[in-house]
Design a protein around this nucleic acid. Structure first.
Lengths: 312, 312
DNA sequence: GGGACGCTTCCACTGACCAGAAGGGCGGCT
DNA sequence: AGCCGCCCTTCTGGTCAGTGGAAGCGTCCC
């Protein structure tokens, strides 16, 4: 049985939010290796919530734990590394990894290391909030890119974090810390602010209740200010983020609506903060976002009838 | 050396027709009517009944079987649909799906249907042959797109099939049948021919031994001709595919090399076959492919030895 | 040449998983 | 309206498949 104390060694829990690898400062808590519904990063002490507090038990959770150890920083691992990180006995890990490999979820390189297999990538590409969304948005993102040659990003919300689904960045554009498939703190990025502003109240409160990680001296770090900014975002219909992630990036972000006029994603344009002209950029982003919403079938984004023929 | 690569060994498994497995019964069969080989390249056995066979034994295989029922044609399924398709008892499916959902591999929509979750998409995005490859290639693909405004595609080989990893297509470009994350018959597409030409002999023989699915009257349908074409591709260093998939598409494809100068992917440009000028397009594709190879660290693609420091 | 490390295989034990059946809600059909 | 079928959810005991310790072996590093 699990004689190892589960909690103490904070290092055990890996998964969690792997933000930008290079970012200094305290790590983003992570934890939450359990299976409980809420990826409750917040579960700091608080309510006991004994259900599933500890250890992976069932086969499936072990299987998933094995997959969970793969991160952007460590995309290739050996058997024993996986066994240690996932806290699964070596022989069990060996067998399960063998099954995963046979199925194609994992692949083994010439060096014997395990890596995520293409089959899993194919499967993941079926996620409605992933590629299908991207497929609709990409052509219009291309247009925005060609018009500006800046960073164009598409992001969605996953719990209290923002996940980047697509990104176009020219060589001359401002460098950003984001990566497609990567997570980031929701209160810092422009797209995150849009998504948070339209998130359910409980999510907002959850974010507001936790310490706000800072990246630059401009990063929003007080709940009061964040609350005010969110209200502003809702009011104006777009978000601005001035050097809140890196010292030279200025972001304009707008919401993208789905079938039921709920916010399903955010479109953001990241430019150099020097010479940025919000008055010029905001209409560009807003109109592109609206066009994407229309393609997604958002009622409020349907113009009159002139948009009919734009459907593919 | 090192450890044996289990790659092709017993990978047969159930490469299960991933494409349009018309499981819905009903009248949906029409699509596959004309197709002899269907996409089931490997599944030769005509055992239609649920009798015997059934490899689902271990828990993990059932878990994976549950995931395997999601296809591009059916990205959202109910519990009982999944149970039927995966041939897993209802209660078992219910429990396993619950665990998958708790972990984030699946999500449930407001209608209760299951769909692939964003977490799985994030995980899949770590596949070395998926996004990382894409991240390197995309900027150069962008350049090629801006120069031509045609379809630019990036594909890799997975067993005896070709998988499309990235695709840029303008609104004015020729329509193609491909989809990012989707599979296709390897002998028909331009990128597939490149990948097959540089694939291990056993893969080539496997493809040559099976009936070659045809899409147009120009599709290569004889092993003899395919063999000749492959030799030609190796000799010239690029592949041409004239209306072999659709009646109006002309494709130029070139190999992309990795660290060890092995072919890891294919870059293809799809244009309208009318007015296509291979003499003009081939150098464009070749040079772009070579640039990507160089970024990937392919020795033979380095211009001189001064490129040493480009290695990551 | 010794030691450490990592991968693979084996096998007896046990507790986690499987499979039916029952309960309750929703929507379509007559 | 009422009926009926479909679907989802929960529960319980028996059984077997998953578990993991340990040993064998190859490789790499001191």
């Amino acid at each position: 049985m699990a004689y190892r104390s589960p909690a103490t060694g904070g290092a055990s829990g890996q998964s969690g939010a792997f933000g930008a690898s290079g970012v200094s400062g305290q790590s983003g808590v992570s934890a939450a290796s359990g299976v409980s519904g809420q990826s409750g990063v917040s579960a700091v002490s608080g309510v006991s919530g004994p259900s599933g507090a500890d250890g992976s038990r069932s086969v499936s959770s072990r299987l998933l734990a094995l997959l969970d150890v793969f991160t952007a920083a460590q995309p290739e691992l050996t058997l024993s590394e996986i066994s240690r990180l996932a806290d699964v006995p070596l022989s069990t890990a060996h067998r399960l990894l063998g099954e995963l490999t046979a199925w194609g979820a994992l692949e083994r390189g010439p060096d014997g290391k395990y890596r995520i297999g293409l089959k899993l990538w194919e499967l993941g590409s079926l996620a409605p909030r992933g590629l299908p969304l991207r497929d609709v948005a990409l052509p219009l993102m291309e247009d925005l890119y060609e018009a500006t040659h800046e960073n164009v990003q598409l992001s969605v919300r996953e719990g209290p974090a923002v996940v980047f689904v697509e990104r176009i960045s020219g060589r001359g554009a401002v460098p950003t810390l984001t990566r497609v498939g990567g997570r980031f703190a929701i209160h810092a990025t422009g797209g995150g602010l849009v998504l948070l502003a339209h998130a359910p109240p409980e999510i907002q409160e959850q974010v507001l209740a936790e310490p706000l990680q800072t990246f630059t001296r401009y990063t929003i770090d007080s709940p009061v200010r964040l609350r005010r900014v969110l209200a502003e975002v809702r009011l104006r219909g777009y978000a601005l983020s001035d050097r809140q992630v890196t010292e030279d990036a200025f972001t304009v972000a707008a919401p993208i609506y789905g079938h039921g006029d709920e916010v399903v994603a955010a479109l953001s344009l990241v430019v150099n903060h020097q010479g940025a002209e919000p008055a010029h950029l905001v209409p560009l982003v807003l109109s592109t976002a609206r066009s994407i919403s229309r393609l997604l079938g958002a009622p409020n984004s349907q113009h009159s009838e002139d948009a009919r023929h734009l459907r593919t």
